[in-house]
Every structure is written in structure tokens, then in C-alpha cells.
Computed example of a mutant assay.
Amino acid sequence: MRLRSLNFLTNPSRQNRQFAVIGLGRFGRAVCQTLHEMGCEVLGTDIDEKLVTQVLTQRIASHAIQLDSTEPESLKEAGIFEMDTVIVAIGNYLQESIITTLNVKEAGVEHVIAKASSEIHGKVLQRVGADRVVFPEREAGCSLARTLNQPALLERFELDPENSIVEILVPETFHDKTIAQLELRRRYGISILAIGDGDKFVTNPNPQERLKKGSIMVVIGSNRNIQRLPI
């Protein structure tokens, strides 16, 4: 099991949801591909015809077209204003990113997610209406640092900046002890959601279940408390 494969974490809130991804660089293509593989309707756009052709050739989006996203009429003609969610993946061209975000929000798109390349860029995106701002490079760096510091931590899904669900290897100090004996909620402020061997998992495990070194447990808690685990 991997956290990114859990349905309740990754599936859209309703079926047949429509997305538009504006900007088909590495980040935008990754978003397109993941959503497309999840069965979503995805329209990819970019001003660069080569990137559009690449997406079409690789079949990682339902549709892909070339357009200038700073022109509201082009966005309207492409049907982007009718989408449930628009991801503005233009991170390195600040003016285009900001104008595009403003265009889709002023047109009434319900949910707009915008990629930012700096704190200032992120603040401006929020000011012009972005519902969520993401910092992919920073988030990847933070994830790498956590992995280096806690190599037994396999996967992390951040619920918010302070709380996460993580998938970790059972530490040696937990070996052959029951969940009840460990008193994880009292000692560490975390709860175990599932335990398993990587292929098969048991959710809401019995408190008398014994943990084995090298097996996997999925826990939920604050990042501070997770950091305290002996892993």
C-alpha cells in the first residue's frame, strides 16, 4: 500500500470531474497524467505548441490545445471557464501566471490552484484570487529532508501544515509488542490507522495485535509528534 494510492486521499470528490491544466512543463504534465490515470476529464493547455504535441503524443490528458492564457477570450473559447478546477502550472513566468489566475477567477471558476515560484509570487496569486497556492520545489525539498532525517518514513500525506498521515516501518523498539502495550496515543499523541507488510493491510487493527519489526504501520498525528517516534 502507498498513501498516494488510497482512494479516500486521491479520488476526486465526485465522479467525472473536469480539470484544466494551464502550463505543460514538468509539473503541469505530472498533474495531467495523474488526473488522467484517475479517470478525470483533463484539458491541458500551453502557449508552446511542442509541449501540447508532447502531451497529445503521450496521451496523458483527455485533450490538449495551444493557447495564450493571458487572453480571456482564448480561455473562454476553449471551455476553461466551465471547468470545475483549473490548475495554473505556470511557475516561472510571473506575469503570465498572475494574469492567467486573475482571468480564470474573474470568469467565475470555482476552484483555482496556482503554482508559485517564490513567497512573493504566492502572495500575489492569493491576492488575485487563487484558492490554493502550491510550491512544488519547496515541498519536494521538505519531503526529501524528512526522508533523510527519518529513513524509515516511507510515505507522507499532509492533511494541513501541522498534521499528516504517514507510512513508516515498525521500529525495533516496537517489535513483538501489542498496540495496547505501546500506548501510542498517550506517549506520542498518534493513532495507528493500519498495519501490514506492503501488499496486504489490516485497517483499524485490534489493540492486541502485535507489531513486527520491518512491517509497515500507517499512523495519523501532528508532524511534531510523528517526529518524536523512534524511527
Rank of each mutant, 00 (worst) to 15 (best):
57 T>D: 14
116 A>I: 10
56 L>F: 02
45 T>Q: 00
48 D>S: 11
114 A>N: 04
134 V>P: 07
48 D>A: 05
104 V>C: 06
122 G>H: 10
107 A>F: 10
91 G>H: 07
96 E>V: 13
89 A>Y: 08
39 G>Q: 02
39 G>A: 01
122 G>V: 05
42 V>W: 00
125 L>M: 05
82 E>F: 07
83 M>C: 14
89 A>G: 14
73 E>S: 15
76 K>M: 11
114 A>R: 04
120 I>N: 12
73 E>N: 13
101 T>D: 09
52 V>S: 00
136 P>V: 08
70 T>I: 12
41 E>H: 09
77 E>C: 05
46 D>C: 01
44 G>R: 00
123 K>R: 15
58 Q>G: 01
123 K>T: 07
70 T>Q: 13
84 D>L: 09
63 H>W: 04
106 E>H: 15
52 V>A: 00
86 V>Y: 10
114 A>V: 06
93 Y>W: 12
100 T>R: 05
107 A>T: 12
81 F>K: 10
139 E>K: 09
111 H>F: 15
77 E>V: 10
85 T>V: 15
99 I>P: 01
110 E>N: 15
66 Q>E: 08
86 V>N: 14
63 H>M: 10
133 V>F: 04
136 P>C: 09
115 K>G: 03
56 L>C: 10
98 I>S: 07
114 A>P: 03
96 E>R: 10
75 L>S: 08
95 Q>V: 12
103 N>E: 11
102 L>E: 12
76 K>V: 03
40 C>M: 04
128 V>K: 04
106 E>R: 15
57 T>L: 12
55 V>D: 00
96 E>F: 03
98 I>T: 09
118 S>R: 10
98 I>Q: 05
114 A>K: 03
49 E>F: 03
37 E>C: 05
77 E>P: 02
66 Q>D: 00
139 E>F: 08
103 N>Q: 07
37 E>K: 12
124 V>A: 06
108 G>Y: 06
112 V>Q: 01
100 T>I: 09
51 L>W: 01
74 S>I: 01
55 V>T: 04
76 K>D: 11
91 G>R: 02
108 G>D: 14
112 V>K: 08
57 T>R: 13
39 G>K: 03
110 E>W: 05
101 T>E: 06
73 E>G: 06
91 G>K: 07
65 I>M: 04
53 T>V: 04
62 S>W: 01
